[in-house]
């Protein structure tokens, strides 16, 4: 194709002359499907290497909801991990129990892991907490994402331990990470970012975010080019979340001022560096009710249990 005429109004890949599928910034360039896919995987590989996220012998629990980010994560790791020495993925899906939403993504997760030949386990809120999310949330929908987040974190940790994982990989992308920085600032809780980032303790299975420098839009494009894109329903509880508002605001800013999201991440990293020497990490204690490691008297989950009555 590189020597042939392109349809009117089409750009060529700067590397090979094939029809472009993406226009990237910084540096500005057009890439074809093959070179975009290669660039995408290379950036994830670099993110993992720069962050020292993986070590030989690691068993990586991939938190696979079946949605787009975790699907891309499983896909890209299945391409990258064979090059690492003795590193293996195991996919873990948390079934929160959200009617009209989770069933479809569960099926998508099962299809993907069968296609990739990845070991896959599903753990449900009903099994771990005695109720599904819809029942837990009845009348508390405004707090849906906070409650679900705490329970999901716990469920993932339990499942990762159960299936022998040494790391937990999540599909958080650049947009998610930038939103979190802004949300913590808006809530007056910027220090939380540093607490979360600094959680290196033998009591916890380390969490890694290989897509944290990858924009959401590029994840969707990657999936389409890998023939793994699915139109799936959105979680019915997202409309209650502050994140939904921040997401719209930030994507508008990113369009008008390219680089905004990356700047937020860079700010977070600078704050982390400034605090690295000064911060005295809170001693890790054991929750007085369940015995899980935590920083206060009660862990987040037990505090939630109390607040839910």
């Amino acid at each position: 194709m590189s020597g042939q005429d392109l349809p009117a109004g089409m750009s060529r890949c700067v590397l090979c002359g094939e029809p472009a599928v993406a226009r990237l910034r910084d540096p500005a360039r057009h890439l074809c499907a093959a070179h975009f896919t290669g660039f995408f995987e290379e950036r994830v590989s670099r993110t993992i290497a720069d962050g020292k996220m993986v070590r030989p012998g690691d068993r990586i629990a991939v938190a696979l909801s079946g949605g787009k980010d975790s699907t891309a994560l499983a896909l890209v790791l299945s391409h990258l991990l064979p090059a690492w020495d003795d590193v293996h993925p195991v996919a873990i899906t948390i079934d929160e129990g959200i009617a009209g939403y989770r069933d479809e993504t569960l099926r998508a997760a099962q299809e993907l892991t069968s296609r990739l030949g990845i070991e896959h386990h599903t753990v449900s809120f009903a099994e771990l907490f005695g109720k599904d999310l819809d029942r837990i949330l009845a009348g508390r929908e405004q707090r849906a994402c906070t409650i679900c987040g705490i329970l999901r974190k716990k469920a993932l940790a339990v499942a990762a331990g159960r299936y022998g994982a040494t790391k937990i990989a999540t599909g958080h992308n650049l947009d998610d990470e930038a939103q979190s920085v802004l949300m913590n600032a808006l809530r007056g809780d910027l220090p939380r970012l540093i607490r979360d980032a600094g959680r290196e303790n033998p009591c916890f299975i380390p969490r890694i975010k290989p897509l944290s420098l990858t924009p959401e839009r590029e994840i969707a494009l990657y999936l389409m080019l890998c023939d793994a894109w699915k139109e799936l329903p959105e979680c019915p509880y997202t409309r209650y979340a502050l994140r939904a508002e921040v997401r719209g605001m930030l994507s508008k800013l990113e369009y008008q001022h390219p680089g905004t999201m990356l700047h937020l991440i860079e700010s977070k990293k600078k704050i982390e560096r400034y605090c690295a020497g000064a911060q005295v990490p809170a001693a890790i204690r054991r929750c007085r009710e369940c015995g899980d490691p935590c920083s206060g008297e009660l862990c987040q989950l037990c505090r939630l249990r109390h607040s839910l009555g």
């Binding site: 009117a8 750009s11 472009a20 057009h30 979680c235």
Partner: peptide, 27 residues
């Protein structure tokens, strides 16, 4: 555009069939 993914600076005209795919939340 006409069934092929295109960058956002691709030029389109009245004869082209454009499909706009919204990136879903979450995942």
């Amino acid at each position: 555009r006409n069934g092929r993914l295109v960058p956002d600076d691709a030029v389109v005209s009245g004869d082209d069939e454009i499909r706009i795919i919204r990136i879903a939340h979450g995942g």
